[in-house]
């Protein structure tokens, strides 16, 4: 009896999380008429909406933009955050204050950070460019990436490094041979988080891109026109846009229980 209750609860939880996502794909297969007839459960699936976002209002460029910006910004964030997090974790650089300042970058309202950067970027010709958005996403992701990596680095016992040092390894080879293999799962999780956040980010993309460097998130909002909302094509684009994040979720579920412990808590 308890087992039955348990599985009923699990099924309810799963449905609550899956059904809305499934509805994206159901909607994307509906014809323009069926979109407005929810009472019709059995409908004839059509690829009309997918054809629409490829031919009538091409959205493939938005995918390319989002991909370039996401990959480049994540690579740069990791390049900045990995050494910094190591330094925070091993040497307690700045006595904890610097780490708090780093985290507090996320407290600054992004809407507001956008004001000065908007004028700066306009003067430097960075509006509606890939580079501009990449720079903003470094700011957007850096603090949390550093915080996550800090936790992972803290879990690596310092004695390992001392032992390697006694064995005559230099700093560089210690990092490469001792620390990197141990930080790899943590770094992988952090990378995926950065990829997902940069991919999903909307506010900066919305304010800083118009046409040339427009990302998928902004492309979605464009279907909300002044007259009507084109639900069908929007759902189709949504369905394609969330595919990479579904892949990310599949990748992460192996690590996640270990990963989200926020090693920082252990002190």
């Amino acid at each position: 009896m308890r087992r039955v209750m348990f599985w009923i609860a699990v099924v309810i939880v799963l449905c609550a999380f899956i059904l809305p996502i499934a509805w994206v794909y159901v909607t994307s297969l509906k014809s323009p008429e069926d979109i407005f007839r929810p009472e019709k459960l059995a409908f004839l699936p059509t690829l009309y909406n997918y054809k629409y976002i490829v031919t009538v209002r091409p959205s493939l460029l938005e995918f390319r933009n989002a991909l370039i910006i996401t990959l480049a910004s994540t690579a740069l964030v990791m390049g900045v955050s990995l050494p910094a997090a190591y330094s925070f974790a091993r040497f307690n650089t700045g006595g904890g204050h610097l780490l708090f300042i780093t985290i507090s970058t996320r407290m600054f309202p992004p809407v507001v950070a956008a004001i000065p950067f908007f004028f700066l970027f306009r003067d430097w010709g960075l509006l509606d460019t890939h580079l501009g958005l990449i720079l903003l996403y470094i700011y957007f992701n850096m603090s949390f990436a550093t915080f996550l990596l800090y936790g992972f680095f803290r879990e690596i016992p310092e004695e390992l490094e001392h032992a390697a040092m006694v064995d005559g390894y230099g700093r560089l080879s210690i990092f490469r041979k001792v620390i990197f293999p141990l930080i790899k799962p943590g770094a992988a999780i952090t990378t995926v988080f950065c990829l997902v956040w940069a991919w999903n980010e909307f506010l900066f993309a919305f304010l800083f891109t118009r046409r040339v460097a427009r990302t998928v998130a902004v492309g979605l909002a464009v279907f909300w026109g002044s007259i009507e909302i084109q639900w069908g094509p929007m759902a189709a684009l949504m369905g394609l846009a969330i595919l990479p994040t579904l892949a990310a979720a599949w990748f992460m579920q192996r690590f996640i229980i270990r990963g989200l412990t926020f090693g920082a808590v252990k002190g």
Partner: peptide, 28 residues
């Protein structure tokens, strides 16, 4: 099952808000 519960966290907040807007629409 735990992995599935991770999904909402990773999906674009804007996309899901738009989707909820559609699903909660008063008429359709």
């Amino acid at each position: 099952i735990r992995g599935v519960c991770l999904l909402p966290l990773l999906i674009s907040p804007l996309a899901m808000s738009l989707m909820w807007n559609y699903m909660l629409h008063v008429q359709f």
